[in-house]
Design a protein around this nucleic acid. Sequence first.
DNA 1: GGTTTGTATTTTGTATACATTAATCATATT
DNA 2: AATATGATTAATGTATACAAAATACAAACC
Lengths: 227, 227
Amino acid sequence: MQDHLQIKMDEFLPLRDVVFNTLRQAILTGDLKPGERLMEIHLANRLGVSRTPIREAIRKLELEGLVIMIPRRGAEVAQITEKSMNDVLEVRRSMDALCIELACERISEEEVVALKKACDEFEQAVETGDIKIIAQADVALHDIIVRATGNMRLVQLINNLSEQMYRYRFEYIKDSSQHARLVEEHRMIYDSIVRKDKETASRVAKLHIDNQKKSIIDQLRLDRSNR
Amino acid sequence: MQDHLQIKMDEFLPLRDVVFNTLRQAILTGDLKPGERLMEIHLANRLGVSRTPIREAIRKLELEGLVIMIPRRGAEVAQITEKSMNDVLEVRRSMDALCIELACERISEEEVVALKKACDEFEQAVETGDIKIIAQADVALHDIIVRATGNMRLVQLINNLSEQMYRYRFEYIKDSSQHARLVEEHRMIYDSIVRKDKETASRVAKLHIDNQKKSIIDQLRLDRSNR
DNA sequence: GGTTTGTATTTTGTATACATTAATCATATT
DNA sequence: AATATGATTAATGTATACAAAATACAAACC
């Protein structure tokens, strides 16, 4: 683990939640790598807190599937296998389709405007060529759709599933030959939501995931062979 | 909280997991009621352990959505609102459809046999008229289908969603006028899986949830008005 | 050489202690 | 009488202490 694991003090959150967010972020960004052990005293010293909040944070990470517990040996960052990624993508594909169908039914006028804006901003982001900006614009756009469902449980589940893909998504975005396709897909999604065309919307959403799948899995394989 | 909250000692599980399972069960069975506070010292005394494993169990229940945390006030059993139940059912409906479609593709010969057996056993369970036996047979049957997907993430997600419905499911099963319909639906599910007819299977799975929805929501309303 | 066994060390699992904040309740004041 | 206020109690948040298990490593043994 490189040493930029640092706690961001949020004055009014319990330490356990601060630690939880910190570790979660570290895992998602790859700062803490799969297989790496999370040793309590170590983390406690590094983050300048006691073991208690560390342990409580780990319990949540455990349930979230980001770390696995080995009894009497402690926690380590969960390995992402090809199988587990396929499982995630399979569910995500279906949930995204559900999201967009519900969005067709329930999206508000303001949200349609926001979605339009997000589409335009994504197009601009693509033009900058900056991966981080593009990824951020992509998240913002999808977030609008997910929230438009009004289903908070669904929001939470999608977020959890997205987590698992987080690290590997970048490779797809990096591939600039896909950018035109992405912009086009987003516009199709926008159009079909506006037209309340659930059929098309759902098809595009699934296609959207299918397109990402190959590069995510490739990246995953590459990652594994590099260890 | 009535006083049959008791710990079941599993020699080789960490206490936090034993406590987690105990509290989880207590919440699902309604032994711990929505809104009821989970006070650490009380629970610790009652279960004969210290606060530490209690707290760690609560962290997991928190992420699972079964309890909510109020800062500096502690945990209480999550209220199940009509909205949150609708959200759950909406996602569950879609996931069940996914499950059964995947099962069509991937179910093994042995699992088909097991599913047939589970169907028959459900029919027998219905004949006994015993709610608990029927509910159990129902769970067993659905479990086979979910597992037949081979998607462990999906299994985990469906289990989490089922939790939320757990308490309220019984009312539907109690209504014996629905029994014939249930048996019929199960047979249709079995048939369509054997024929690998994803279209029909998916439709029946959704219908299956839709049929349960009304009585679950009714029960929820009744539950709320009784407090 | 390889296996085994024993000891030291590390790490987790659990309990407890201390600090801080929230809730309670009685008393005083207007 | 109603509201404020202050002391008391109780609960959570955090840190630390202690016990037990796992690991690592070295010496003894075959």
